[in-house]
Design a protein around this nucleic acid. Sequence first.
RNA 1: GGGAGGUUAGCUCAGAGGUAGAGCGUCUGCUUUACACGCAGUAGGUCGCAGGUUCGACCCCUGCACCUCCCACCA
Length: 887
Amino acid sequence: MSETRLTAGPEEAARKLPKTFEPASFEERWYRVWMDEGRFQPQGPEGSPRFVMVIPPPNVTGKLHIGHAYGRTVEDILARWMRMRGYRVLWVPGTDHAGIATQMVMERQLAKQGIDRRDLGRDKFIERVWAWKREAKDTIQSQLKKLGCSLDWSRERFTLDPDLSRAVRHAFVSLYRDGLIYKGRYVVNWCPRCGTAVSDLEVIHKDVEGTLYRIRYDVPGVASGAIVATTRPETMLGDTALAIHPDDPRTAKLRGRKGILPIVGRELPVIEDGILVDREFGTGIVKVTPAHDVNDFAAGRRHGLPEVVVIGPDGKMTAEAGEFAGLDRFEARKQVLARLTAENRLVGSEPHRMAVGTCQRCETIIEPYLSTQWFVKIKPLAEPAIEAVEKGDVRFVPSNWTKTYYEWMKNIYDWCISRQLWWGHRIPAFTCANGHLTVTEADPKSCEICGSESFEQDPDVLDTWFSSQLWPFSVFGWPDETEDYRKFYPTDTLVTGYDILFFWVARMIMAGLRFTGKAPFSVVHLHGLVRVGGEKMSKTRGNVIDPLEAIAEFGADAVRLTLASAAASGPTVSVERSRMAGSRNFATKLWNAARFTLGQVETGGEAAPLASAPKTLPDRWILSRLSSTAEAANRHLAGFRFDEAAGAVYQFVWHELCDGYLEMVKPLFSGRDGDSPGREGARAVLLRCLSDSLALLHPFMPFVTEEIWEKLAGKPGTLIVEKYPEADASLRDEAAERIVEAAREVITRVRNFRSERGFSPTEPVRLSIDPDSPDRALAGEVRPLVPLLKHLARLSDLSFEAPGAQAFRDVVAGFSVGLSVAERAGSGDSNRVAKQVTALDEEIAELSAKLHNPSFLDKAPRPVVDKVRRRLVELEERRSALSSGGS
RNA sequence: GGGAGGUUAGCUCAGAGGUAGAGCGUCUGCUUUACACGCAGUAGGUCGCAGGUUCGACCCCUGCACCUCCCACCA
């Protein structure tokens, strides 16, 4: 290897890494290199294990926010990690047409120019949306690239692409032929502002303080009439019955009679319905409005009641509402109430807390509206999807989402999939001139029943989620058995926010099982939603973090590391700008550590074979730490604990490699003398630690690690496909860890000794280590570190003897030590020592009480008892040291 | 009406049946030739409240308080 070295020497190599760390100077370049080298396409031999993900396709409504950046970062970490572990990784990018959302964006744009989409016409409108879509897609794509996402752009998809549209049609027709899609007239959730039906999931329930009105209806033959309660008086205009419970004695006198609808004068049969009417609630009499309430609708169908629509699709009263026709539904409520009051029929009203449904997109109050729609019969799809999770074919991480999934799946209702919109997949249903319905994948040529060649396609489009649910396989060309489909389906891991568990994840599982016979992925990682400093992001709060701005300010690596570090298992992911700065500082730290290392080692290969080099205690220590860091990183990545994984490497690089090892080896390199013993070994170790750190960090910080790697290797970077470091049992060295860490504690104690009594940091300190320390073996083992201790702790003298009477005494990490400065003992600071003594006394009392407790000695496990004993000994040692020497 | 999660250092959050951690911030020193986006050191917490289980609970159980969120066709 060393013969092929490309760089000449240490100094030259160091010069290649600029003094200041400027992420913007290399981020773009690396992304291009990876692309040009085809690294985002499945790498490695065909037979090797594969790892496949599909991106949750972002809506083409605009640009990505920090929440997207979080999810995609997590995915990219997985992709890069798996790629480095030798998997053939494929991560498929794409975008979602997002029917309602995108149409709304476009309508708002048009509104600014004073244009109504209806004036434009369907074709012109859709043309404009396509133009918008192209722009939004480009923006999203460039954002994902800036973030460093290793997506295979050659396989990018859009839900309205021709082949994906074909998948949608195929799925629709297949479900229709199997009787799982039907068309019918039912009460659905209707948004009067959007002018479309929406599914149950798209209705957001909000608690509001409403009013429950009591209204008296006349019932000939019953003097008291019938008192009914309603929160929506305006719907009474559409009443077609009164309902009582068959077994309720309170209302028995109404049985078989007819009521009279106030204002309208319509006769209302009294029906008996044990499902609709709750015997316990209210007056026991219910007004029945089949066209404007789901329950009433069902009751109406049971009893064959007329369905009178009094509120139209625009939220205004229809002609059926008589004198109220044309009024907005809320204005109508007021006027109906006024009228009832005038007629003395309003017998009471009381405050009533209730949930009102609002539109997920525009917050307009949803109207239950009787209309003809298309539905998916969902139970037959849900059952296998429940089973798949029960059998473990699909696993949720964290697992507590499993229960939520089951609950929803078991109480699922049919899915209304038709939308009265323009932007989306047109429903493949055609009606011929004679009214015959044809549902086909290809546009029909002639009617199979009457031969008519004139057709009209259903004007409605499908719910966006109908196409999204096919995403994991439609992106691979399904329903065709394409090569990609065979190679890459089913996928492995799906990463998405828990907020679309029902909308998307559950439906993908149902669709995947139905259409491909396989669960579309085996693991679903549901992450929390990003909050900024504990608060929901919002423009009014002014705490919105724009990923692009953050990247410009801190660098993509810092943004990614911050997001990864914020990843917790909880429902919220808290991100703060100050953490971004911290991550950028870490990147700078890494950069500078590399500059130092490059100045000391020759690059272009292993400076010296690591295995054969003689190793010092610090060498053994840092390599051991490196090995356990690699172990922790892999373990936590496998468990989707990106925060722990990132934290482990961060801690290692900053606090062990930089603060620890680097400082320990500096004397070896600064010496003017030709060959310090251990220098060659240190070079090998340094190089190994740096290169492994870069590799360990690469999934989190791909750009800066690749940039440094290139300088280190002396040739163009390929870190992205380098092997991910793993725990190396041969490097584990517990003895070295114990000794070096004890030494580090001693160093800290010396520094702290100075600062606590006001000495300058350069004041020479004499340290004595008592051979008769609590841990005698350690006192011997630490001897090889004497020169290092003297250097790092700036000791004027280090002796292994009982501390003199003048010395300030303490116990640290198993050592009894004595500290003094020249001939003076450490004085002053009695305050602090007193505080420490008090704390020690408290703990000593506690521990000895424990050791005098027979049941503790009896029942606690041996190791615990032993540990307490040892601790007590050390504390007592420390107690006597603190109160004896020096002051 | 059901269900899930939370309540830990000034802030944002990790954590585990055996005497509490990080990042940022605070304070005190440092031009220690990789790094002031730095180095060294320090302070700061009866781990929401009340019971219980246990030799031992911040961690398990019960109840309470407060805060999120999800689901829900009670007029």
